[in-house]
Amino acid sequence: MTALVPTVHSTPFARAARMEWIKLRSLRSTAWALLLTVAGMVAVGVVTMAHTKAPSPAKAAVFDPTNNVLAGVALGQLVVGVLGVLVVTGEYSCGSIRSTLAAVPDRRTMLAAKAAVYGTVTLVVGEAVALVTFFAGRAALADGVPRPGIGDPGVLRAVLLAGAYLSLVGLLGIGIGALTRHTASAIAALVGVTFVLPAVIGGLSGPTVAKFFPTMIAGNSLAVAKPVADMLTPWTGFAVLCLYVAVTLGAGARLLAHRDA
């Protein structure tokens, strides 16, 4: 009965990924959210740099304008993370998950395809916006303030890791979405992990525990050209984040595979 001949022969994962790509770009909310991320991060970076003053001689050694220009990552991660949550929970709230699973019955493949597509899109957008923000913010620095160069020690690494961070939070959103399958609880968990818990724990016990939370890693380990005392080093912080993403996606995939859809 299958008179239709498939156009090409590809793996189930490749087919699922093409499906997710079409789904992602056919929603207007995707473009709006990514535009908001770009506009917000560039704006925060420019405003922060315009207000950055030349350091006193005592503080010149720790002066790190690269960290200032990337301040908008805190905002960008929220939009990218919430959109990541919606990539999964949006399907459950509107019922389209049943179409998706009819086409891709293996739920691990389905989640892997979502993560691959959304992770790639947010990585590209994240790196682009981090670079644009750096140069726009650098241009906004007042005269007399030392300008960071992209070739200065640690600067390119800080910019690129800040861009990658957005993608990692997007993947964290997908993983949390797969764990709860409900928009409200998943967003609450995401905001709790990125904003609430590090603030509370940091306030109570200083950086000892708080330095392991994503936003703290982003602001103090990744987006820094000069290392910050008591914080994780850039690559340790990056590895810790990758571990969080792997564990969350793994647990989400496992739960999806065992639950009724």
Binding site: P6, T7, V8, H9, S10, R15, A16, R18, M19, E20, W21, I22, K23, S26, L27, R28, S29, S96, S99, A102, A103, V104
Partner: peptide, 16 residues
């Protein structure tokens, strides 16, 4: 939020 054509195009992609 997706058009009928995009919805079906996504499913068609999943089945080659």
């Amino acid at each position: 939020g997706r058009s009928a054509r995009a919805h079906l195009a996504a499913l068609a992609a999943a089945a080659d």
